[in-house]
């Protein structure tokens, strides 16, 4: 049963990633693209976690944690660059 749920999860998250990619390419303003990348990072974390369940290994958790940290830091850095014209003052 978990296998069927995993198949559904992979399909749903992959479709979500494609929709985010569409917003990233089309996004009318700069901040739309930043928001799309931020959402893509979160969806990629979900995909990594689901892949870890399928492979029955806990080795991907560190990767997911690093993804979470770098996604947050890059979003905040980009927004600070827009707001202040500089990342670290």
């Amino acid at each position: 049963m978990i296998e069927y749920a995993l198949t559904f999860g992979f399909c749903a998250v992959s479709l979500a990633l494609l929709l985010n990619l569409w917003r990233l390419l089309r996004g009318p303003s700069l901040m739309d693209r930043v928001l799309a990348v931020d959402t893509m990072v979160i969806n990629a974390i979900a995909l990594i976690i689901l892949f870890g369940i399928q492979q029955r290994t806990t080795i991907f958790f560190e990767g997911a944690l690093l993804f979470a940290m770098f996604g947050f830091i890059s979003t905040v850095a980009y927004c600070r660059f827009i707001l202040r014209g500089d990342v670290i003052e």
Partner: peptide, 9 residues
Amino acid sequence: IVLGGFFSL
């Protein structure tokens, strides 16, 4: 898992 995929979508 299904709920997680659904909400991501």
